[in-house]
Every structure is written in C-alpha cells, then in structure tokens.
Computed example of a mutant assay.
Amino acid sequence: MVKTSGIWLLRRRIMLEDHPLYTIMHPRSVAIVGASNDFSKMGTIQLINLVAGSYPGKIYPIHPKEEMVFGLKAYRSGRELPEPVDLAILTIPTSAVPAVLKDLGERGVKRAIVISGGFKEVGERGKELETEILSIARQYGIRFLGPNCIGVIHPSFHLNPTMYPYLHQFGGVGIASQSGTYVTQILPYLAKLQIGFSQAFSVGNGADLDLVDCLEYLAEDPETKAIAVYIEGIKRPRDFIQAASKASRAKPVVALYVGGTEAGSRSAASHTGSISGPDHLYDALFRQAGVIRAGTVEDLFEWAGALSLQPIPKGRNMAILTHSGGPASSLADACNRRGLKVPLFSERLQARIKELLPSTGSFRNPVDLTFFMDMGVMMEKLPRIILEDPEI
C-alpha cells in the first residue's frame, strides 16, 4: 500500500512539473523587459519587488539603453541574454511586444508573462496584435500568461514580480483571476484576515494560458488547499467544466462571476475583452462542475481561506457546538437550507455529552452549553467526543 501511494504521488509530481505553468512559477532565471533605473516605471517596480522578496534565481534586466539597472548588468535585447531564461516578463509599450517576443523566441525562451495592455480589450487593432503575438508564441513554442495582466506570485518560492509587495505569510489559497487587482491590491485586506496565497495567477486576456490551465495546475499543486477563481467570462466552457470538476473532487473551488448583468458584461468586455454569458447559465455550469459560487469579493476570499484550513467533510451530517441558543438555531437553519443535515446524536453520544454540560445545556445537536466557563470542555473535550462519532 505504501509503495502504491508513493508511485501515485510521483506520477502527480511528474504531471505537475510537465504543466506549462510549473516553470512560470518555479523559474531559475527571470528576464524583465522594461526594467530601468526610473522608479516610476512598472518594470522597475517589478524588478525591485523580485529582488526585495529574496528571489533565489538569476535576474536579467532588458533595456535598449541602460548598461546597468540597480547594480545588475542590463541587456539590450532578448537575443543578447547569456542564457535562455526560464521566464521573461514583458512590461513595455504594446507595439513593441511582437518584436520583443520574437527576439526571446530566437534566444530559446519558452515561458513568458505579457503585462502590457492594449490588446483585444481596446478593439479591432488590439485584437490583431493579440493574434500576432499568439502566432509568434506558437512559432517558437512559447507559452505565456496575459497580455493585459499583473503577473504571478509564489510566496514560498520568493517569486513576486508584480507591482505590489507580498508581506504576510503564505497559505493554502490558490487564486486564478482575470483581474490583477485580486492578486495584488487585495493583499493588505488578505493580510488583515491572515489569508495567504499558495500560488496566484493574473491571466488578463488569457490569449494563451487561461483560467482552465490555472485550474488544472492548482488542482495538482500540493501547496494549494482551496482554489479561488475570479471570472469575467469563460472562453472554453467545456474545458472549464472538465477542469473544475476534476479540481473540485480534490479540493474546494470557489468562484466569483461578474459578467451576468448588463453593466458587468460591458465592463468585462472593456477590461479583458471577455465575452460574458447570462447568470443562470453560469449557475448551471458551476453546479455541474462542483464549484461554490460566491456573491462578493469578500465571500470569494473568506470562503476559500476558511476552506483551505479545513478538511473536506466526508458527508452531509453536521454537528453544531455553541454556548448560545440563537447561534445554534441560526446555524442549524443555515445548514438545512444548504442541503446539510443536523441529525440527532445517538443516545450513547448524548449521554457522553450530557455528563460534561451544566443542567441548563442542550446535548442532542445542536449542543448549547449556555453560560459555561470551562473552555477546556468547549474547545477540547466536546469537539473530540463529537468528532469521534462515525455519523458526524
């Protein structure tokens, strides 16, 4: 049995390392195209965050004029790089992206993140440019995130080439987002709630690697205990259902969809060029795939954060333990409304619980201690006794 388990884990590890996102999240070397000595430039801020975050690999600034960038030797183009880096990050004017991507391809670079915006989200000319860079990427075997994205964060690997520092602990929430804000600007809010990322992806327009690829990757990632997905539109619904269904069987998947209204759909089209669909279709899609639909950004992260810290229940039978009748009743009601059961405990379990409660307490499920000062009973003894019951 141990040998079989070891083989299964090895296969999962191989599958993960073969995924195109693995190298993007574990690069041994990074080139930042657009980094300079100007603090006001996004590429410079990205480089500073990468260095300040103790990234362990090699960093190569690429700039057409600079000789040195913050003490690092700079290179005039991708062709001049001393090695084909594991990851290239492009934060440059939109019109320059095709030529730079071609230079990187000629040097043998196979993974990239295109931060630059101004592609399909701005109209027909932008669509043509996006088609062009996708064609160049396919010609050279480059897989990339973006365009029009904010980048990625892998806290435990000390990889953060975004504009925002990651200052709190890493955790078990993996995020795939069509908005960069919910990977970066959200960080102070998450730090306050002590919700940490395992790995985070801003996919932007998703011209090449998209939400489906992120779901596939995060489903296999051992650091990720729950997955959060911010969606403005899904371009591969069948593949999404397949990937989300597989992922949700292994770990909880929570999604926030914002394209189901007229205003949300219009905003999504101008933000990432996403084509949205009616709300009821996404409801059905999420139900089919086992995805939990959040109603707000707060729900998205708070639910994923809570689920990342808890094992997935084996069944629907819930036990409620509290010290007040009101919360006991409201929790029991909420469980039933969500399809969960709050069964009466067996007589044997009731007897064990009753021995520990004051005479005013309720012991049938919910368990209500009423006024009771022995926190050892509430926080240690009762949970252990209840969770030992195979029916819960």
Rank of each mutant, 00 (worst) to 15 (best):
P56H: 12
E391F: 14
A247N: 04
G233D: 08
C335T: 11
R79I: 13
T91S: 07
R111K: 11
V377M: 05
S40A: 15
G71Q: 09
G118N: 12
L357N: 06
L104F: 00
S156A: 11
P188L: 12
E262Y: 15
G6F: 13
G151R: 00
E232Q: 14
G264Y: 05
K225Q: 06
D374W: 11
A74D: 02
G141A: 10
G180R: 04
M373T: 13
S156V: 08
G233V: 07
F144K: 01
I24L: 14
P161R: 03
A263I: 14
R236K: 13
F372L: 06
R384W: 08
S77T: 08
K192Q: 15
M25C: 12
P165H: 13
P383N: 09
D389M: 12
G273Y: 09
V254T: 05
L300C: 07
E66A: 03
V254C: 02
A176N: 10
M375N: 11
I392F: 06
A284T: 10
G325V: 12
Q139D: 15
D86P: 12
V69S: 00
T162L: 10
E17N: 10
L90T: 06
P252W: 03
S274E: 13
S329C: 15
I7V: 15
Y55M: 05
H271S: 09
S329T: 14
E388K: 12
I231G: 03
L349R: 03
P390N: 12
N317V: 11
K381A: 09
V69A: 03
S135G: 12
A319K: 04
I62Y: 00
L10S: 12
T44S: 07
Q199N: 01
G108N: 03
G264D: 04
F157C: 12
S179I: 13
L21R: 02
R348F: 02
G117T: 05
A112F: 06
T91G: 08
S265E: 08
N205K: 10
L307K: 02
H154N: 10
Q199K: 01
L167C: 14
N49C: 15
T44R: 01
Y22F: 13
R111C: 03
S265R: 07
S40F: 15
Y164L: 15
R236A: 10
I48L: 11
L190D: 01
L309A: 10
P56D: 11
A319G: 09
P366Y: 08
G53H: 11
K120H: 11
